[in-house]
Design a protein around this nucleic acid. Structure first.
Lengths: 162, 162
DNA sequence: AAAATATGATTGACTTTTTCAATCATATGG
DNA sequence: CCATATGATTGAAAAAGTCAATCATATTTT
């Protein structure tokens, strides 16, 4: 087995824990922001998905539920645009949430083609629980950063994400 | 047609351009770091994939090629660990790159089960070109940030990505 | 107003990506 | 030597993403 180049301690999370991959930390790829973003997201949503499984939710369905509960009365089209998903994927996600009684499709008086996604009382309760879980997952994923650093990260990301 | 709530100008990129989704920018979801990370990555790798298409590469194959060219002589197992991919996905990626003559599988004298992925001369040339394209794509995706902010972002991401 | 055109939701087909279990060859620890 | 673990590979199945077509309703044009 090839010996690790630099003796890197297990400072942070537990992702590739134990593996002998530290050798690749020094590559060009490992310092590309795009790569780091992809990796951070993979780790983060992986953990969130695992933890949300206990509510039979995934990050996707959580996102839809969250927007439904936002008070902004999003239509399916808006959900698709905002979440960068195909409208047909929204149909499937809303179907699931509707089937379990968490949201309803309300007619939009302004445009009868459009369906506004609204939460039920049960949906709001579900969202409350899911929100707490996502918060926990996020706390775990971001444990290496203090509150100020998280705020900085949030701002920087917001500027490249919109 | 529902009128936009706040008149937000097209300050940044061109993602959800023109859409009336600005209303959702103020939701809780829109300020979750995990959500922003996912969105940034989706936009970034989307653009990179589009631009890499001219070399018949994707972000995935580019990453493998990049690590092959890193001088770190990664094995397939290491690529799988580092890229958080299933070993079978690495097989497919390396197959493609090998078929087009960009990399080879070299036997590892230390462990004859293991295959070290090495670039060919053509592979290095391909990587050079791909690197330039990815750099361009990245520049575009990160255009809202100055050099110092990019450095900050890189550091913060590195700390949560490893 | 009627006709033409555009848009939101939905469906279905199809491709790609992900995830898993099984297998073979080789290592490693007893 | 035996038992067990690991790297690469294959193949199957599940999930996610992409696209074109359709229906109902809006909007625009003539």
């Amino acid at each position: 087995m090839p010996a690790p180049t630099t003796a890197e301690a297990a400072t942070s999370s537990q992702p590739t824990a134990g593996n002998g991959v530290e050798r690749l930390y020094s590559t060009d790829l490992a310092s590309e922001i795009e790569f780091l973003t992809a990796r951070a997201r993979s780790l983060g949503s992986g953990r969130a998905n695992n933890m949300l499984a206990e509510l039979d939710l995934k990050v996707r369905s959580y996102s839809v539920l969250s927007l439904a509960c936002s008070g902004q009365n999003p239509s399916q089209r808006e959900l698709a645009d905002f979440l960068s998903l195909d409208p047909s994927q929204i149909v499937a996600l809303v179907d699931q949430l509707e089937k379990r009684g968490a949201v309803t499709r309300e007619a939009d008086p302004r445009d009868r083609r459009s369906k506004v996604i609204a939460p039920t009382a049960a949906g709001r309760r579900l969202y409350k629980r899911a929100e707490a879980i996502v918060q926990q997952a996020s706390d775990h994923s971001l444990s290496a950063l203090n509150e100020q650093e998280r705020e900085t990260l949030r701002d920087l990301l917001r500027r490249i994400a919109f």
